[in-house]
């Protein structure tokens, strides 16, 4: 094993470019690998193949097999060894191939990764990032379209984030990697090929790990979305504008912690709130947001907080997934119900 991966000198691209969300994560990973020799990528098929979604395309060639590691096909093994590497001072970024495959690693993430800092009273920590492509809409077979974010958000010790745009994807993956806390980084795989402007020189701090963002201003209803449903919320807002209703759209970005303040500020203004996510509504992020908004905006609310999300069924077959996924029509229906109160 070489201790320093041989690679050619890299000049990082700068300026603003139009990138797909997948390529934006790739550029963010590339920058993280170049900036910190302790950063490692680990996962199945992330080497020569570049990952099944090509998110790690070209990175093994550039940084070597010791830093972009094709692991054995065992998710608990990936997470468990990542924890050990983190205890040794490394910053592993694990790729889980699909949402439905994270569960063999669920034990390592929830009983070990999430608790190391707490158990040691801060003496040790495990700054591991777990990248999980999630969500549906891509016509895939079973276990390839799920949204398990609530299962992780329910675990103290983890940070849960999800980008909705290429710019956020680029910045957020770097902020996740520099965070001393473990971060579950949910990538909206249905949006991997959506394009957007990315400022490659955007500052990398920690803002996106904690802060939601108002991505469209409005006055009559607040649409809270994250990851894949932000685009749905924005399209719904356009349709509502035609109807003469002004919707404010909040892109949550972080699910743990939820940025309560940004949501509350918006709902106190609009008086109505609709939460949109692909995950089942029951015990989902929307339920938490509804509780928080109700508690803090009770006297500002014109209507109960409503949710548009998955039903309490396993993710359905691909041929019927578009009947299951939150659509603009279902969002408009929820807004109508909110206005009917």
């Amino acid at each position: 094993m070489t201790t320093t991966a041989e690679r050619r000198e890299t000049t990082m691209p700068s300026g603003t470019r139009t990138l797909t969300l997948a390529k934006a994560i790739n550029e963010g990973l590339r920058r993280a690998l170049a900036n910190d020799p302790k950063v490692l990528l680990m996962g199945e098929d992330i080497g020569p193949l570049g990952g099944v979604f090509r998110v790690t395309d070209g990175l093994q060639e550039e940084f070597g097999e010791d830093r972009v590691v094709d692991t054995p096909l065992a998710e608990s093994g990936i997470l468990g060894t990542a924890i050990g590497l983190a205890l040794r001072g490394y910053r592993p970024v694990c790729e889980i191939q699909f949402d439905g495959f994270v569960f063999p690693a669920f034990n390592q993430i929830t009983t070990q990764l999430a608790k190391l800092r707490y158990r040691s009273r801060g003496a040790v920590g495990a700054p591991v990032v777990v990248r999980i492509p999630y969500g549906g809409g891509i016509g895939a077979v079973e276990h390839h379209s799920e949204s398990p974010e609530a299962l992780f958000a329910h675990t103290p010790g983890l940070r849960i984030v999800t980008p909705a745009t290429p710019q956020d994807a680029y910045t957020m993956i770097q902020e996740a990697i520099t965070s001393p806390d473990p971060v579950i980084f949910f990538e909206p795989k249905g949006r991997y090929w959506s394009k957007g402007e990315v400022d490659l020189d955007a500052p990398v701090g920690s803002a996106t790990l904690n802060a939601a963002k108002v991505v469209r201003a409005g006055t009559d209803v607040t649409l809270v979305a994250y990851g894949p449903t932000v685009a749905t919320a924005l399209k719904s807002a356009e349709a509502l504008e035609v109807e003469g209703r002004s919707a404010e759209v909040v892109d949550l970005r972080a699910i743990s912690p939820i940025d309560t303040a940004t949501i509350v500020d918006s709902v106190r203004k609009t008086g109505r709130c609709v939460v949109i996510h692909e995950a089942p509504m029951y015990f989902g992020a929307g339920a938490e947001i509804a509780a928080r908004v109700t508690e803090e905006c009770f006297y500002s609310l014109e209507a109960p907080v409503l949710r548009v999300g998955g039903f309490h069924i396993p993710y359905p077959v691909a041929k019927l997934e578009h009947d299951y996924l939150p659509s603009v029509d279902r969002v408009l229906d929820a807004v109508d119900r909110a206005f009917a109160h």
Binding site: G80, A82, G84, L85, A86, L87
Partner: peptide
Amino acid sequence: MYTVVIGAQALHAVGYAMGMQRD
């Protein structure tokens, strides 16, 4: 520290050893 979830620490040990190799 002690690990109570049976066998979980074996993977941490291997990861730590992988770090030693890289070091």
